[in-house]
Amino acid sequence: MRLIDYANPTRFLSLSAALLPWIVGVTVVLFAVGFYLVFFVAPADYQQGETVKIMYIHVPFSWLSMFCYMTMAASALGTLVWRHPLADVSAKCAAPIGAAFTFLALATGSLWGKPMWGTWWVWDARLTSVLVLFIMYLGLIALQETIEDPARAAKAGAILTLVGVVNIPIIKFSVDWWNTLHQPSSVFRAGGSTIATSMLVPLLVMAVAFTFLFLVFHLMAMRNEILRRRIRAMRMIEAAGVE
């Protein structure tokens, strides 16, 4: 089966209905394993102590904030290039979920920062980029809520998403540059390669678990959106009196 075969919303509805219980099951198992590893197996960091436990949710949230945007970007390409009928449903439904995860990345980062830095917020390069990303999510949602016609809103949102994708690396680079200019020493170094295996495994399990959680929400929201459009079309038929 090619991707275009899933373009039929009815087929998508039946397929997703069959898949959803399995995905939910995998998610639950992954979270059970992940929480066990985090709270009973993973060691405390020798510098940060037990606060490192926040990392096991903070890092997956920031990973998801990017992953969700990339999903939207892929959907935006699907909308603009292939005019895939499910692509704009996918993009529209991913936006609020992505915004929620980005918010959680900011909130947990702040809660992690308070014991580490002594303040709730520092203009750290990473936190600042995530904040800009969060504003971009809110802007996208605002744009889609403001344009009434769904097809037009989807196209405008797709263009803005792609412009955002092109700009995100530039924003990241400039915020990093700006940060080194103003704060030469960054305290916050959740080191990518220096992390120990005993911490990496729980982190990876949690990251996969949250990705599956995103998948569950995304599929559920997409099903709702398809039904909503169907209802909208039926209301129009009813209003036109074609019966």
């Binding site: 504003i135 744009l143 412009v163 955002g164 700009n167 924003i171 680079f173 400039s174 915020v175």
Partner: peptide, 10 residues
């Protein structure tokens, strides 16, 4: 302004 301001950060 909301849409464009994040893009003008660099």
């Amino acid at each position: 302004a909301i849409l464009v301001l994040p893009l003008t950060v660099p």
